[in-house]
Design a protein around this nucleic acid. Structure first.
Length: 570
RNA sequence: GCCCUCGUAGCUUAAUGGAUAGAGUUCCUGUCUUCGGAACAGGCUGUGGAGGUUCGAUUCCUCCCGAGGGCACCA
């Protein structure tokens, strides 16, 4: 709808929030005014701020932006193409051009929903384009903490959004299964002569290491040596490392199961060992490396405005996180040849990704036309507003949060285990997704488990309610009278037609919270309508049933994209 | 010290240059002997401070105050 309008008009329109201003609005008259005013300044006697706009056509002028807007829409009112969609065009305020969609179009759209069902909202604007999304990416040997929730949930939502728009989407879980952290663990396991361990023990060892390292600085050095051994292929080190990985993966799978998240690939950092070897021998890359303090090899990025150089190889020759990310990019470029690569990773790594992206293009690892995105999501902060610290063992385990959510949902209703799980998990997911990606989220049990107001369960409840109404009397979208629509019905129809535009905006701005806002707004409009309009038994029963069914369908589609289940009853 | 992000109602927050700053929650008042009350309607309270750009600023620029994150051999 939006793009149809823009094609006809030749300028951009925005959806309006306020129905008094129509369905779409354009500020083109005001923005053009500025350009015209500057362009014609010399023609205007005496002022920097001309009150009169002069046309390039001789003899033509407008007194203000509103006049100019009126001029712009001359012709639009009689435009046949436009008339198919638009019933009214008005100039308002200081020159806004507002458009009202025809009621017939709104009603046709409702019929489309009943025809397209779960496909309603999808498009093919991404056809032929490929997106790689790097998300979740927990660290091996550490429990799956609350910190990885955002990446997992937002990443999964972006995955679904791009898929809905016709993109070919690849999800890759970039497991943190390599690096000096394993040196630390290997050192501790060797020190305590352990042969068997679980994930809790690994976490304890990690915390213990940092405690000891506070008193003995040489420990960091020892850990680096152990990692170096691992990277050189020491069989004992490798054996212990493998066990750490296996123990962790079992744990993660359980969490993904609870969250109902599936990720296409999980290559993990260790997968890129050979790729890194290749990069180190690559002469084209070699010539861009400089030698830093103590013999470390670095990539200087000052010409890209980044003061901190990228550490390519440590002074002992071992690789770093950045080396592995460059190797990963090389691999992804070769394997998938993507148009966009999205890193759904926290804001704390902003500098790192600036370095990696700049270096990747500079070193020719990826093409210049690949869009590299770091979503830089905000973090879950402890209730005191501080960051949770893995090193000090101050984490909240995601599994405990999820279990608590399910328990709270269970207490509320007499519905079964499955529904309680869908509601509890839905609440957690929605709470995460409703926040703007970049904002920090304070961890607060009461708010996360909120089941009223703007929450996942509110939306699920609305769907269950529509299901219940439809179950009582089947809507017939083949034939119905749509005359005499009341205000509530029009509000809902207008919201329904904008679903696809919201999906496009959510995806292109990497902001699932926009979809959350939309769905909540739609549910609220429906609930208000439901409260003051009888559906079954009204004169307009069939239309109202089709409308209810349309709302139900869009809510289901939207929630499915967000990764939130919609129980039939709850 | 330098860099990035942020500061909106008591609390949690939405709005990336537009029109009367939108919600949730808390507190107060109603609707309803429910086509599912996990609902609906109403009330109270808000853009950290000072300048600037603009027809128009929560949004862009400068400074100040405050918070969070980061600053080559952690990831």
């Amino acid at each position: 709808m939006k793009s149809d309008l823009e094609n006809i008009l030749g300028f951009k329109v925005e959806a309006t929030e306020n129905p008094d201003f129509g369905d779409y609005t354009s500020n083109v008259a005001m923005t053009e005014y500025r350009k015209l005013a500057i362009a014609t300044e010399s023609h205007v006697p005496g002022g920097k701020k001309p009150g009169i706009i002069w046309s390039s056509k001789p003899g033509k002028q407008w007194n203000n932006t509103k006049d100019y807007a009126e001029y712009l829409i001359t012709g639009f009112r009689e435009n046949k193409e436009l008339k198919k969609y638009i019933e009214k065009i008005e100039v308002a305020g200081s020159g806004f051009i507002n458009f009202w969609i025809k009621k017939d179009v709104l009603v046709d759209n409702l019929i489309q929903i009943s025809k397209q069902k779960e496909k309603y909202g999808s498009t093919d604007i991404g056809k032929g384009k490929r997106v790689v999304i790097d998300y979740s990416s927990p660290n091996i040997a550490k429990p799956f903490g609350i910190g990885h929730l955002r990446s997992t949930i937002i990443g999964a939502a972006l995955y679904n959004l791009y898929k809905e728009l016709g993109y070919e989407v690849v999800g890759d879980n970039h497991l943190g299964d390599w690096g000096t952290q394993f040196g630390k663990l290997l050192y501790m396991i060797d020190r305590e002569k352990l042969t068997d361990f679980n994930i809790e023990k690994l976490e304890a060892l990690y915390v213990e290491f940092h405690k000891l390292a506070m008193e003995d600085e040489s420990l960091e050095e020892k850990a680096r040596n152990w990692f170096k051994k691992l990277e050189e292929g020491d069989t004992d080190a490798k054996k212990i490392w493998k066990k750490c990985v296996d123990v962790s993966l079992t744990e993660f799978d359980r969490i993904y199961d609870m969250l109902d998240v599936k990720i296409d690939f999980a290559f993990g950092e260790s997968y890129y060992e050979s790729e890194m070897q290749g990069m180190m021998r690559d002469t084209a890359i070699q010539k861009h490396l400089s030698v830093g303090e103590d013999g470390a090899k670095i990539v200087n990025l000052e010409k890209f405005g980044i003061k901190t150089p990228l550490m390519f190889l440590k002074s002992d020759g071992a690789t770093t996180y950045a080396t592995r990310d460059l190797a990963t990019l090389k691999f992804r470029e070769r394997k998938w040849n993507p148009d966009i690569i999205i890193y759904e990773v926290g804001a704390e790594q902003t500098l790192h990704f600036q370095q990696v992206f700049a270096a990747a293009k500079f070193l020719g690892i990826v093409g210049k036309d690949v869009t590299l995105v770091h979503t830089a999501h905000g973090l879950y902060l402890a209730p005191d507003g501080k960051k949770f610290s893995t090193r000090k063992g101050k984490t909240i385990k995601l599994e405990e949060v999820l279990e608590e959510a399910i328990n709270r949902a269970k207490k509320l209703g007499n519905s079964g285990e499955k529904v309680a799980s869908e509601v509890g998990i839905g609440a957690i997911k929605y709470y995460d997704l409703m926040h703007a990606v970049t904002s920090n989220v304070v961890f607060d049990w009461e708010k996360m488990m909120n089941l009223e107001g703007n929450s996942g369960p509110y939306l699920q409840y609305t769907v269950a309610r529509t299901n219940s109404v439809i179950a009582k009397s089947e809507p017939n979208s083949e034939r119905f009278e749509a005359s005499g629509l009341n205000e509530g019905e029009l509000l809902i129809l207008r919201a329904l037609i904008k679903f696809n535009e919201v999906l496009v905006e959510s995806a292109t701005k990497y902001s699932p919270n926009l979809l959350c806002n939309y769905l909540y707004d739609l549910a609220q409009k429906f609930n208000a309508y439901y409260n003051s309009n009888r559906i079954i038994g009204s004169d307009n029963q069939n239309f109202r049933l089709v409308l209810t069914s349309g709302v139900s369908q869009v809510l289901k589609n939207g929630l499915r994209i967000l990764g939130i289940k919609t129980p039939e009853k709850m």
